[in-house]
Every structure is written in structure tokens, then in C-alpha cells.
Design a protein around this nucleic acid. Structure first.
Lengths: 149, 149
DNA sequence: CAACATTAAATGTTATGACATATATTAGGG
DNA sequence: CCCTAATATATGTCATAACATTTAATGTTG
């Protein structure tokens, strides 16, 4: 639906003004849908992101810094995210022997299983994008990449 | 910069997969920049959004429900957002006489002044979008509107 | 009108992002 | 080797989103 109708705003000053709102609004739309899929798995979007990074490293461990660098959304609270994942037994954490300041974080078998189960959820998720064609998705990606400069 | 480099991910499965990540990432980029402008005004992005809605209603009051409906990001904690804005004396709140369940929220003179001061910040903000042309911004807007179906 | 449903806000809880500060460990310079 | 700087995490605080529950007021129905 047109953004103007969805947030009941009459008109935007210009296309740039609308774009700012549109990005925020579309992000919310996306995350809402995404989260409702993830709820079936019992993890949040941030936690899921961490698990996917850890699977990419597996069987090697990742440090908290590596997780921070690769997180999609923000350089943020990787320490506490890992702590919550550990409570759920989806990751394990131990002090790195070669540098005792670091911690080695690894995904557990239970964590890997959760990601496997998520594969069909990913398929459902991609249905979300059925409104636009692959070429249009690519166009969107290129424009967004350029927007950020 | 290309998303793949920014998050150090080799490759995406397809353009849709990248698009999901790109929207989340671009939202973060936008909000980071936006927030640093708003910090000069002493309000957060959500609080600023509420103030703008209230200015749109002024001199009429808005109910909490109206604020929720029009918030850009989420149907969320309008009650507590208003509470924080009241502490800063940017809004006032009183029980609606005709329906005592509702509250009438209005922007104060101090709140209106803050928004005036923000106008030149808005201009700085639009510099952020200088990488793309107006027609490209419109294309982006149309694609995002269609994406959400 | 009395009992119950509905509605509008407020409140409580948990996870998070943003940010500052603290702590432990390692690295580097003299 | 000792002192200080830099580094990797952890921790504390505040604002927020998401969600459930509670409270107060109004509507509805028999």
C-alpha cells in the first residue's frame, strides 16, 4: 500500500523526505514478519543473526568482536546476546587459551539443529517478497547500496 | 559501499535474500545518522516522531490511540513516550472531558520551538541522500511501496 | 438498572540498542 | 622487568519495542 495511506500522512515535502520514512516503515514491516517466523523457533532476530554467523565459522569459534563486526543491525550488545543464547544452550563460551581477554564462542549441536529447522521457515519468509520480480529486487539492492554512499 | 563488503559476507543466496539484509542494514545506517542530528535537540527519534504528529494536530489534542496509529515505526509505547516528553515539558496531557478513558495530549510552546529549531537540522539531514537523484528516490519509494504489497 | 463486554490507558516484564564506565589481560617503551 | 597504553569483554543505565496484564470508564444487553 502507498505509504501515505498507511501512516495517514497527507503528503511528503519531497521524495527524499518520503524515502527516509519509507525505509523506517519498510524495516518495521519486514522485521514484524520475520519475527513472527522466528517466534516458532524461540529466538529473536538478533539471536538468530548471531547463530547464523556462528554456523558460518563452525567448527571454529568466534570472538565477541567478530560477532560485533558481522552483525547486521548494530555493533551492539554481543556479550549479553551470547549470554542469553547460552542460557538456551544454543551456544557455548569459554576463555580463549591463547589470549585470555577473548572468549571463544561456538554454536552447539542444539543450535545447529535449530538452524536446520529454520530452513523451511526461510522459504516461507521469501514468500514475503513475491510482489516484486528478481530484477526489481536487484534494482532495489543497487539503489540502497548507492544511497549509503 | 556494497553490502557484502560492509558486513563481510561472501555472497547471498539470491537478490531477495540480500534485500532482506539490505533493508535492515540501510535502516540502521539511516537511524544512526538521524539520531546524531536529533541528539542536538535532546530528543530521540521516536520522541521526535510523536512531536511531529502533535504539531500536525495542533491546536487540537491527540489521544494516545491516534499517536499509536500514526507512529512510523511501531504501534508501541505511546503512553511512556508521552510521559518522557512531559518530563521535558514538550507536551502536556490531561484527561479528556468527554470520555474520561482517553487523554488529550498537546504539544507545548517549548515543543513547537524545538521543532522550529529542527528545521535546519532537517536540511543537514537531507544531505545524506545526495548520492541518489530525485528520480531514483522516487523509484526507490515506488519499489518499497510495492514490496509491502 | 445490573452484569458483562469493550475500549483506552497504564503498568510490568523481557530483549535490545546506545552509550559510558569498569575490569582483566596483553603489548610496548624505556 | 616495570609502567602505561591498548585491547577484549563485562557491566550499568536509559530509552525503546513487543507483549501480556491490569485498571478505569463506557457501552450493551437482558
Amino acid at each position: 500500500m502507498k505509504l501515505e495511506e498507511e501512516i495517514k500522512q497527507k503528503k511528503f515535502k519531497n521524495e527524499y523526505d518520503k524515502l527516509a520514512v519509507n525505509i523506517i516503515y519498510t524495516h518495521g514491516w519486514l522485521l514484524n514478519n520475520y519475527s513472527s517466523f522466528l517466534k516458532q523457533l524461540g529466538v529473536t532476530a538478533s539471536q538468530y543473526n548471531i547463530l547464523r554467523i556462528l554456523r558460518g565459522q563452525h567448527p571454529n569459534p568466534a570472538s565477541i568482536n567478530l560477532l560485533k563486526e558481522r552483525m547486521i543491525d548494530k555493533m551492539s550488545d554481543a556479550s549479553r546476546l551470547v549470554e542469553r543464547l547460552k542460557k538456551k544452550e544454543l551456544v557455548e563460551r569459554e576463555i580463549c587459551p591463547s589470549d585470555r581477554r577473548q572468549v571463544d564462542v561456538k554454536i552447539t549441536a542444539k543450535g545447529l539443529k535449530l538452524l536446520q529447522d529454520s530452513d523451511n521457515i526461510e522459504e516461507q519468509f521469501e514468500q514475503l517478497f513475491k510482489e516484486i520480480k528478481p530484477a526489481e529486487a536487484k534494482l532495489l539492492n543497487d539503489l540502497l547500496d548507492r544511497l549509503r554512499g
